[in-house]
């Protein structure tokens, strides 16, 4: 009983802290958003390692895929909703999607409905991803790849990227957004 209560308190603490970081990230605070993703990646890794005990090689790829999904769909987070439920639903969706793609139907028999478990443990020890996202980035068209490289990898401002590409600033933002969505699609198709 007391152990359960402790777990609840920890989960709640994580929920409150991560939610605050995400909300700041949604407002455009890059540092808070980075901290959110960093912390989240540890939680996801622990959660997915527990769930995919038979497929340890898939874990890091799936952590990355889920992080990209969280980022691409971050506009669907409703501040009135528990973050745990939102993250869990995304992680579960991506995990099932991966398992389907592997067409290992026997793996689907695992019970997958343990929502609170997503925030109970953290594992910051990243293994190696087998899939190389940088390689997939090269498959994007120049119009999407260059804005991502300038603003996301080289850390230039949107204005600078606009100047370098000859695109308007809003076009740069749209290209980054669409490019990252395309990247998620390439990841799905690549595996």
């Amino acid at each position: 009983m007391s152990v359960n209560a402790n777990v609840d308190v920890n989960v709640n603490g994580t929920e409150i802290r991560l939610r605050a970081l995400l909300l700041r990230g949604l407002a455009g605070e890059s540092a808070a958003y980075q901290q959110f993703l960093q912390d989240l990646s540890g939680r996801l890794r622990a959660f997915l390692r527990g769930r995919l005990a038979g497929l340890p090689d898939e874990v890091e790829d799936l952590v990355q895929e889920t992080l990209l999904a969280v980022h691409n769909q971050r506009h669907t987070y409703d501040a009135a909703q528990p973050l745990t439920a939102w993250v869990y639903a995304i992680a579960r969706y991506k995990m099932i999607d991966m398992l389907r793609r592997r067409a290992k139907r026997d793996a689907l028999h695992d019970p997958l409905d343990d929502e609170l478990a997503v925030f109970t443990a953290s594992d910051q020890d990243a293994g190696d991803a087998r899939r190389d996202i940088a390689g997939l980035l090269d498959q994007l068209s120049d119009g999407q790849r260059l804005p991502i490289i300038y603003t996301k990898l080289e850390g230039r401002s949107v204005a600078e990227a606009a100047q370098l590409t000859g695109m308007s600033e809003s076009a740069v933002k749209v290209a980054v957004h669409r490019g990252l969505k395309k990247l998620a699609l390439l990841i799905r198709n690549a595996s």
């Binding site: 990230g25 230039r156 401002s157």
Partner: peptide, 19 residues
């Protein structure tokens, strides 16, 4: 790409979401 690099990529210059 390491996960930490991906996180930096995603967070770098992240734009505000206008719900």
């Amino acid at each position: 790409m390491k996960t930490d690099q991906l996180i930096t990529l995603l967070a770098n210059g992240v734009s505000a979401v206008d719900g």
